[in-house]
Design a protein around this nucleic acid. Structure first.
Length: 885
DNA sequence: GTAGGGTTAG
């Protein structure tokens, strides 16, 4: 048969087309026969094609026979095809064997040889041969080849040799999506999630679009780390390729949405998932717990057990929910389930159980578990230390910390907890020691530790150190801001607190619940009405008014600012109330001398189903005492023991002493003290002394003063009180002695100061101030008022002057009391007839109290005075306290 | 691929 070149060309083309489209092994064999009969059996092209095509149908025997028949004329193309055929069919060792045979025949490999050989090394985990082949690549100068580079990155990644994977990757002159995917998958499958994510971001920055392989290596492990926007891009991509049906991807998405706190997103994924495995259920249950939705997580658990057997992860998550809900019955049930089903406790599970015991108030059980634990890691030690702290056993916590240090390196959380101990106990020495430790162990570089340090220094009144730390921070979070805002209570600086809230917002951070709970007490402290109102506005705008704790802080703020009607409005609008809400209201009534309203509120609280706690009893006892409701007060004290089984604390006893002695029953108060089961401390004697001082029970006061001095308290207030008692008794030698002892102890009497807010500005006056704005007019007004008062029968109470000077000088000194200066300044700068509000840091002195009554009547003004203890509303020559204070 | 300890406020 004569065949013209043209016709032969046509034949080749048609056979080639037939070969490519052969879709079944029999067709392939027919085309193969045709190739042989057409005399094309030795063609370089058809040999290679046939090898690949047979490999495609997993018929490696035929591939190899085609290859062997062509021998010894096999060229690099044939070798590449046969090696690739074996690699693609998972016969890695054979592929590697063929590669070494090829090198023995002297046929030089080309760039197309290597990807499949390298894949074979990766697949068979031949690390040494892999390294040798990498050397071949370098020796042959193929290091810039994209496909070889990708194969090498993938190989090293599979060997967990991330250093070499990274090296090859970094030296590649060009990279495609596969290169990036290989490195990402290398990191993520070796547990280096953060590195994987950072490579992913590098890829996005290089302008490479992620594909489904990217999604499958990023989503499952790094879903929780990825930023919200990127997460959504990955989700869209997965959905576009239908990958979200894959259980691993959908579980990754679930976890991701929970990390974004996007409950709706997670629920959509979960309800859209046809097949759920234990991971899907556990992720949902844990996710609910992370969002604080503990009841929901238990509900989900009940659904789950109908179709799935819970594992240790499910059980421990539910145990955590029980601990948070204090549902110990269900917790016990779950613990039993764990034992009955022989679910073994691993490290994490033991730690969860440990935490549950601590949270549920069972410190003994937690100690037993802790002592029996084989492997105690940082989390276990920290939990145990935190347990001791929660129960107030600070010494035990410190002892455990020392033991921990002998075995393990403490971490930032250990330090954070110790800082909280220092803050709580105002222990600057310990605080500074911990500060040194954080430097030594490097935990100071962590944001939360810096936050803890700011708080510690502020609470220990080292205000400058606290602010310095804050100013030197490069990164601040919402806790940093909240901490420094809250610390303004200790700086007594409401302006700063208010400014900081603004600056925080400039910094791009939104105030949260804790911000308001921090700044409102600052307003309360200084009776900063305007700021308080503005903060209230801010709370409404940001929708925090439904938070119970925020409502409580608002009630307190308004009442401390003298605006009890606003307190009541807030109280009435609250959707939910707790025992603190009621206690705050009761205290507010108490401060305003509205004892009977306080009693009514207490009863309403009980009726509404909220049980009083020991603090609520302090509030009601205080309110009764300040309104002279003695019998009912005593009844409350007894019912606390009888009906609620609370053992009275020192504060309760002090309230009762106050209640009795304030109403003149000094003898009964003394008897009560002797009958106390606790050893009376300085607060008890102080309460008695203070009442004696007011009631002028001179002998008793003298006796009690001696006792207080003996107790050697370091509380400045009691020393001042004793000194005042001696001054009133005219016992100036004793006054001198007390003052000397105070000086020796480094105590300083808080100077009396009062302040008044006029047209958005706060004016502060210190006792005896002579030079201030309008001082001449102020003193002139006080002199004028004095002469009117004297005509009406006012006699200055010279005992209120606590200095050993002549009577004229005493009269002069009374005139300069800070509350009087503030009142006079207020009278001068407000419209006639408008009400005035004055704040004083200490208690109002009896003479000023009398004077204010006169002033209210002479000037026809309503004057509200808030002192360290309570409110006095002066109107038409009377005071709301009924002269009981 | 899913689980644990901590800081501000009360």
């Amino acid at each position: 048969m004569s065949v013209f070149p043209k016709a032969r060309q046509n034949l080749r083309s048609s056979i080639s087309a037939a070969l490519s489209s052969a879709s079944t092994p029999p067709t392939l064999r027919r085309v193969h026969a045709l190739i042989i009969t057409s005399g094309l059996g030795r063609s370089e092209y058809f040999v290679g094609k046939l090898i690949s095509k047979y490999a495609h149908f997993r018929d490696l025997k035929s591939s190899l026979s085609v290859f062997r028949l062509a021998s010894p004329a096999n060229n690099v193309y044939h070798w590449n095809s046969i090696i690739r055929a074996f690699t693609h069919n998972g016969l890695f060792l054979e592929a590697i064997g063929l590669y070494s045979e090829m090198r023995g025949t002297g046929v030089p490999p080309d760039p197309y040889t290597f990807p499949s050989v390298i894949n074979a090394c990766a697949g068979s985990h031949c690390t040494i041969i892999g390294g040798v082949i990498h050397e071949h690549v370098l020796a042959l100068g193929f290091r810039s080849d994209l496909y070889i580079g990708n194969a090498l990155v993938d190989m090293y990644a599979r060997f967990s040799d991330l250093v070499n994977a990274r090296n090859v990757f970094d030296n590649m002159p060009a990279r495609d999506v596969v290169s990036w995917n290989s490195l990402i998958s290398g990191y993520s499958s070796n547990g280096c999630h953060e590195e994987a994510l950072s490579v992913y971001y590098g890829m996005r920055k290089a302008g490479i679009q992620p594909d489904l392989y990217t999604v499958s290596s990023v989503l499952p492990t790094c879903g929780g780390l990825v930023a919200v926007d990127e997460g959504r891009i990955l989700h869209c991509l997965a959905a576009k390729c239908g990958m979200d049906a894959d259980i691993i991807i959908s579980n990754g998405l679930l976890s991701m949405y929970f990390k974004f706190n996007d409950l709706v997103g997670a629920q959509k994924i979960f309800s859209g998932t046809e097949f759920r495995d234990s991971v899907s259920w556990n992720t949902m249950i844990c996710g609910y717990c992370q969002l604080g939705l503990f009841e929901e997580s238990i509900k989900l658990f009940r659904d789950m057990i109908k179709i799935f057997t819970p594992d240790i992860l499910t059980i421990t998550s539910i145990l955590r929910a029980c601990a948070q809900l204090r549902d110990m019955e269900f917790g016990k049930f779950m613990t039993n389930y764990m034992v009955e089903n022989c679910l073994e406790l691993d490290n994490k599970a033991s730690n969860i159980l440990l935490d549950m015991h601590i949270k549920s108030g069972n410190l003994e059980a937690s100690i037993e578990l802790f002592n029996g634990m084989e492997c105690r890691d940082n989390v276990a030690w920290n939990s145990m230390i935190s347990g001791y702290i929660q129960y107030g056993h600070h010494d035990e916590a410190l002892r455990l910390f020392k033991m921990m240090k002998l075995r393990l390196k403490p971490d930032s959380i250990t330090h954070l907890m110790l800082l909280s101990v220092s803050s709580q106990s105002r222990d600057i020495t310990l605080g500074k020691q911990v500060h040194c430790e954080t430097v030594k162990f490097g935990s100071i570089s962590e944001l939360c530790v810096c936050n803890g340090l700011i708080d510690m220094y502020a609470k220990c009144k080292e205000v400058d150190d606290s602010l310095k730390l804050f100013q030197n921070m490069n990164i601040r979070d919402v806790v940093t801001w909240n901490t420094v805002i809250s610390s303004c209570v200790y700086h007594e600086d409401s302006d700063l607190g208010f400014k900081l809230v603004g600056k925080m917002r400039d910094d791009g951070l939104n105030p949260d619940k804790a911000t308001f709970l921090g700044v409102l007490p600052v307003c309360s402290l200084l009776a900063a009405k305007r700021q308080g109102k503005e903060i209230h506005g801010c709370i409404l705008r940001l929708g925090f008014e439904s938070e119970v704790s925020v409502g409580n802080a608002l009630i307190e703020m308004y009442s401390k600012c003298g605006n009890i009607s606003s307190s009541i409005i807030v109280f009435k609008h609250m959707k939910a109330r707790d025992v603190i809400t009621w206690t705050t209201l009761i205290s507010a009534y108490g401060m305003f001398g509205e004892g009977s309203k306080a009693v009514r509120a207490f009863m309403e609280m009980e009726k509404s189903g909220i049980s009083p706690d020991p603090i609520a009893f302090i509030a009601i006892l205080y309110a009764c005492s300040h309104s002279g409701i003695v019998e009912q007060g005593l009844q409350f004290f007894h019912s606390m023991k009888r009906e609620y089984n609370f053992e009275p604390r020192m504060e309760h006893y002090a309230c009762v002493v106050d209640l009795l002695s304030r109403s003149g029953r000094v003898m009964q108060a003394e008897e009560f003290i002797t009958s106390m089961p606790l050893k009376p401390d300085v607060s008890i004697w102080g309460a008695l002394l203070s009442a004696c001082h007011m009631n002028r029970c001179i002998e008793v006061a003298d006796r009690i003063s001696k006792r207080i001095i003996e107790l050697d308290s370091d509380n400045t207030g009691y020393h001042v009180l004793v000194s005042n008692v001696y001054a009133a008794l005219g016992n100036w030698d004793q006054v001198k002695m007390v003052r000397k002892s105070m000086k020796y102890k480094g105590m300083r009497k808080d100077p009396g100061s009062s302040w008044v807010e006029i047209k958005r500005k706060v004016y502060i006056f210190r006792t005896g101030d002579k030079v201030f704005e309008q001082s001449e007019e102020v003193y002139e007004l006080l002199y004028t008022l004095n002469s009117s008062m004297t005509k009406q029968g006012y006699v200055p109470d010279l005992q209120c002057v606590l200095h050993n000077v002549g009577d004229d000088e005493k009269r002069e000194m009374l005139l300069g009391h800070s509350e009087r200066l503030a009142i006079a300044f207020g009278l001068l700068n407000t419209k006639p007839g408008s009400p005035l509000q004055i704040m004083k840091n200490l208690r109002v002195c009896p003479d000023c109290h009398t004077v204010t009554k006169y002033i209210s009547s002479i000037t026809h003004r309503e004057i509200l005075v808030r002192d360290a203890n309570r409110f006095h509303l002066f109107r038409n020559g009377t005071c709301s306290c009924g002269d009981r204070w």
